[in-house]
Design a binder for these strands. Sequence first.
DNA 1: GTCTTGCCCTAACGACTGTTAGGGGGGCAG
DNA 2: CTGCCCCCCTAACAGTCGTTAGGGCAAGAC
Lengths: 219, 219
Amino acid sequence: MAGAEADRGGSITGVTDVGPEVLGRGPTRAGTRRAELVAVATRLFRERGYHGVGMRAIAEAAHIQAASLYHHFAGKEELLLESIYVVDRDLVVDQLPLLEGSGTRPERLQELVEGHVRHIGTNRDAWWVAGRELRALSPERFDEVQVYRRRYQHAIAEFLAAGTAAGEFDCPDPRLSALALLDMLNGPNEWYEPGGRLDIDELAARYVDLALRLVGCCA
Amino acid sequence: MAGAEADRGGSITGVTDVGPEVLGRGPTRAGTRRAELVAVATRLFRERGYHGVGMRAIAEAAHIQAASLYHHFAGKEELLLESIYVVDRDLVVDQLPLLEGSGTRPERLQELVEGHVRHIGTNRDAWWVAGRELRALSPERFDEVQVYRRRYQHAIAEFLAAGTAAGEFDCPDPRLSALALLDMLNGPNEWYEPGGRLDIDELAARYVDLALRLVGCCA
DNA sequence: GTCTTGCCCTAACGACTGTTAGGGGGGCAG
DNA sequence: CTGCCCCCCTAACAGTCGTTAGGGCAAGAC
């Protein structure tokens, strides 16, 4: 907090670790600063949990004061919602259409699994927060996000059911298979770290294999 | 497992009211009250998260004052550790030996999966807390628990590797298969609720099937 | 009787919580 | 120059956090 004094004298507008490329120059496009702050908050939420991080901690990580956050967000919960939303929206918007695409069902499932695993790999903080801090949202916000989640899950269940009827899969209980598949796919969210034994593409490839086994596709 | 709960005279899991009827009576066996308080805390941790629950809230749910908790526990973290410990200890103590038992490897895996799923079903609060609030522990406590977790995971990985070498399984990457299997098995922890579409025994049976598929056992 | 043990109480500590009120300064448009 | 907008500031609000100090009441041991 001695840093607050120092900042005042010199570089109010200038030097932060946050988005250096954007901040140095003149007025940025509206929403940029907001996105930077969300990224900072997301990282902290991941490290310490929503209730474990205070507004002052978020502000400090962004090199501003806590009160300044309220010029960008209505409150703490808005930061959380913004952290979570990207993940669930991307799943429904980018991933789900893959199931309706061309190719055999195993091929389409392969694309879904690859995209899913890669999305986890490139949005680790947000995924972690989305997976564990949902309950911290108010009931209305909670339901709002839950709608996306259920849609994704149900679409996969129906996809597996259709594939089973067509003889491409073997899922006696498609709803349960969808749950098990999703739980498996979301697993790397807990333990994957870049620079580990497998890079994200290898991981995605192996998960495609595991997923196909799970749904009874012996191709 | 259910037997272990029954002979404790109280409600280890779930049942809410640890109430006046216990207070009025004579002295209970040492450690009993402690276990009751842990159960209350575990349930609240599950509902609102570790940082989302205060000592006063735990105390209120147990119909005592916050300060009274400190006659049973050194601090809040001790309550969390106690909530988590049961799960990880049971896994290593009760589940792991199943892999060394008699029978073919697929049979042994079946026993492990059944036991795992059923343990989740009968200790839902503790599992939820153990899965999500680990990071709230101090580093030393965290490592202490993590040792159990890694031992379980590594034992399964080696079991899958041995089974693959013996031609009973087909796991080209046993370590990854173990992770994926565990993530799938832990999934019900997030969504299983008693009284749902499947009871716990049906769920365990279906997960045995899914697990065998995952490890490439076509038996 | 006294002493101990187990369980609980009231009251308070300092630190921290999310949030608000109100002010200021820099960059750009006119 | 003035006026506007964006971003940030200091200071403070009321409330909650985990924790501690110190005392009381009932039951069993001696």
